[in-house]
Every structure is written in structure tokens, then in C-alpha cells.
Simulated scan of single mutants.
Amino acid sequence: MEFIELLKAIILGLVEGLTEFAPVSSTGHMIIVDDLWLKSEQFLTEPVANTFKVVIQLGSILAVVIIFKDRFIDLLGMGKHIKVHRRPHLKLTHILVGLLPAVVLGLLFEDYIDEHLFSTSTVLIGLVVGACLMIAADLYSTNYQHKRTLDQITHKQALIIGLIQCFSLWPGFSRSGSTISGGVLLGLNYRAAADFTFIMAVPIMAGASFLSLLSNWKYFTLDVLPFFTAGFISAFLFAYVCIRFFLKIIGRVKLMPFAIYRIVLALAVYVIYF
């Protein structure tokens, strides 16, 4: 395998790592990059290319698991201090309640989504509409003082955030963009909304990725393994750095800069394509 092909894998991993958990839609970016670049690779058939995208997504998921490892240990009841809780705290049931709506709708409409919504034109719609939701959340937050932390989230709030997360089934809308916006609109502070988003994303993304890998294991051949490995490592490293940085700045910059970026990106791609 030539160096230029490994470089492309690293760049694609970079795109995945930087966008998977930022509120800009990694799926939308990967569809755009796929149309512009990935499909041009002669050695990558469509099933192999799709498997590669699953592999690099797992790199991003691993970054979240490492960053929130203490929280996941507590959720699983393995933490030393998880004996008796006398104050509100995030439970595994909050995560399950938040996941349920998207899991159900995703299973019901998976074939329709794959067949009709994975295109550049539908991504542009998702980018713009998702940006409008993020702007609305920011405008709301300027009028209210949000003090509710991650450990103060209620099951009702988790369910509503999960319902709002269903918008992200439309490629380009963004899982983190929808859930962070929903959390802010429900009274969570930005950091709490972001933390809940990232933690909630791991089981649903990991489950879907592993199922996809099981059905596509035959595409892990020696000739593409270096390409897959380079992409996985790249996605993990860039996702780790991006998430750490994002969590530090989200309370200050909020969602508006990301919303503006989404609209500018949609306009730029529209001009290029149409």
C-alpha cells in the first residue's frame, strides 16, 4: 500500500475524530468526503469503504470511553464510592431512557434512512435545520440562568433529550448538536448537556458499530488492514484531543460558532455541487 493511501486514511480519521462529537455532524462530513474522495479509491469497494467508516468510528468511541472512564465505572456500579447515594446522581437508567427513542426509531426506519437520506442534498438540509435548533438553544440560554448539572438530570429530561436525539437519525443533523441543544432547552448547563451527550452516545454507537463489524468481518483483509489501522489510530487521537478541547470551551463559546460553521459549510457545498 502506497504512502499516499495511508495519508488519506489518516485524513479521513481526522475528519471523523474532529467531527464525531462536535455538534457539526460527522455523518454529514463523512458523506461529503465520501463523495469527494473515498469513492475515488480503486482498491476500496463500497462494502470495504463502509467497513472502514465503522472502524474509524470505533476509534472515536474509544476516546470517549477513556475520557469518561470514571463515570462509566460508576454507572456500572463498579466505583468504590457507589454504595449509598444521598444526593441526585446520574444512573444507568438515565442513559437507557435517553437511548430508547432513537434505538426504536432507528430499527424501524433503518432501511428507509439508508436508502433515501444518505446523500449530499439531504445532509445540507440536516446541517441547516440542525443549526437553527442550536441557535434557538443559545438564544434561550441568554434569557435564563442554567444551573442544573449532569447529576441533577431527571428521567423525564433524559427521555425528552432522547426524543430530540431522534432528529439526528437524519444525516447532517448531528447527534451531539441535537442532544446538547435539547439539554440546554431543558435547563442543563452546557457542560452537563455535553457530558450527557457523549456518555449516552457510547452504547448506541458501539452496539451499532460492532454489529456492523460482525456482518462485514470478511472485508478485513491484509491488503486493507494498514488503511484501516491508520484510520482508526488517527480517529482516536484527534477525537481525544477534540473532545477534551470541546468540553473546556463549550460553556464559554456555546453553540453559535458551530451553528454558523454548519450554515457556511452547507452553502459552500451547495455552490460546489449544485
Score class of each variant (00 low, 15 high):
M1S: 02
E5S: 05
L6Y: 00
L7N: 10
G13A: 05
G17K: 01
F21W: 02
A22G: 00
A22T: 10
S26E: 07
H29T: 03
M30I: 07
V33F: 13
D34F: 10
D34L: 03
L38A: 05
S40G: 06
L44T: 15
V48N: 03
T51Q: 06
T51M: 10
K53M: 03
V54N: 09
V54T: 14
V55M: 05
V55L: 10
I56G: 00
Q57E: 03
S60Y: 08
I61K: 01
K69S: 11
F72C: 00
D74T: 13
L75R: 00
L75V: 11
L76W: 12
L76R: 04
G77S: 04
M78H: 08
H81S: 08
K83N: 07
K83I: 01
V84F: 14
H89C: 09
H89M: 05
L92D: 07
L100H: 13
A102M: 13
L105P: 02
L107Q: 10
E110S: 11
F118R: 00
S119Q: 13
T122A: 15
V123K: 02
I125F: 10
A137F: 10
L139E: 15
Y144C: 02
Y144G: 00
Y144I: 06
H146R: 10
K147D: 06
Q152S: 03
K156V: 15
A158E: 09
I160A: 13
L163K: 05
I164W: 09
Q165T: 00
S168R: 08
S168A: 15
S174N: 07
S176H: 09
G177E: 13
S178A: 14
G183C: 04
L185Y: 13
L186C: 09
Y190R: 09
R191Q: 04
T197K: 01
F198P: 00
I199C: 02
G207F: 05
S209T: 10
S209A: 15
L213V: 09
L213M: 11
L214H: 11
N216A: 09
Y219E: 12
F220L: 04
T221K: 11
L222N: 12
L222V: 13
P226I: 11
T229W: 08
T229A: 03
I233D: 05
L247V: 09
F258S: 04
A259M: 05
I260R: 04
R262I: 15
R262E: 13
A266P: 07
V269Q: 05
F274W: 11
